[in-house]
Amino acid sequence: MPLGPDDSPGLLLWRATLRWQRAVAAALAPFDLTHVQFVLLACTDWLNRQGELPNQLAVATFADTDVKMTSQVVRKLEEKGLLVRAFDPVDSRARLLRVTDRGAELIRRAVEEVERADAEFFRAVPDTAGLNTILRRLAGRQP
């Protein structure tokens, strides 16, 4: 019996990812944030709250995003007044990132909505801890 589209883990992952991205985009729409803007702002905020003033490369590495794209998105977040970029005194080519008070408040509310969307989306999964283990492996985050 030939295999069909519903037998392809890659296609199923693609379809599930698209559904999840639509849910997250809807949750972020009231905040005027794209998904990548949300991820980079949330990562920067988290690093700031850990006492770090990361440069763009550190944020890109942490978020697992392309460095050039990260730079473009960070500029857009700065234009929106959600974070500031400052020259790194150690490396004049680098920019240190700090989330503004406005950005911190916005990301706090956005994270709540994204977590709500995640809970709704993944409620059909009986073992989210097991799913997270599998996703970490697929993302190269654990052996």
Score class of each variant (00 low, 15 high):
L77S: 05
A86K: 13
D64R: 15
R85T: 14
Q56M: 07
V84F: 09
T100C: 08
L96T: 07
R85M: 14
R108A: 09
F62E: 05
R108H: 09
F62L: 07
W46C: 09
A104G: 13
A60F: 03
P89H: 03
W46Q: 13
T34M: 01
R49H: 08
V73D: 10
H35I: 14
D91P: 05
R85K: 13
R95F: 09
T61R: 14
L96I: 08
N55L: 04
F38I: 08
T44I: 00
V67R: 15
T65K: 14
D64H: 13
G51Y: 01
R93E: 13
W46H: 12
R49F: 01
A94I: 11
N48V: 04
V90S: 12
E78S: 15
D66S: 04
H35P: 06
F31W: 06
S92G: 09
P54D: 01
D32V: 12
V39M: 10
S71G: 15
A63F: 07
P54A: 08
L96V: 11
L77I: 02
D66K: 04
A26F: 01
D91H: 14
L77P: 06
A104K: 01
T44G: 05
A42C: 04
Q37L: 00
L40D: 04
N48L: 03
R93H: 14
A104W: 00
M69T: 15
V36S: 12
G51L: 03
R95H: 11
L77R: 05
V99F: 01
L57A: 11
R98W: 11
A94T: 08
L28D: 05
V36W: 00
R98G: 04
R85E: 13
L96C: 03
V59R: 00
P54H: 00
T70G: 13
L82P: 04
V74K: 08
V59C: 02
N48Y: 02
F87A: 14
A86V: 12
A86H: 12
V84S: 05
A27L: 03
V74M: 15
D88L: 03
F62A: 11
A63H: 06
C43V: 13
W46S: 10
L57C: 04
A104L: 05
Q56P: 04
I107S: 01
E79Q: 15
L28N: 05
L96Q: 13
E105C: 04
R93Y: 12
L28S: 06
E52P: 05
L106I: 14
D66V: 09
F38M: 09
V36L: 14
L47D: 00
H35M: 14
D101C: 02
Q50S: 04
K80N: 01
V74G: 07
D91I: 04
E52N: 06
G81P: 07
P30M: 12
F87H: 10
R49M: 03
L53V: 13
F62I: 00
A58H: 08
P30K: 10
E79N: 13
L96Y: 06
L106V: 14
E78G: 11
A58R: 13
Q50E: 12
K68G: 12
V39K: 02
Q72F: 09
L33T: 07
V73C: 06
E52A: 12
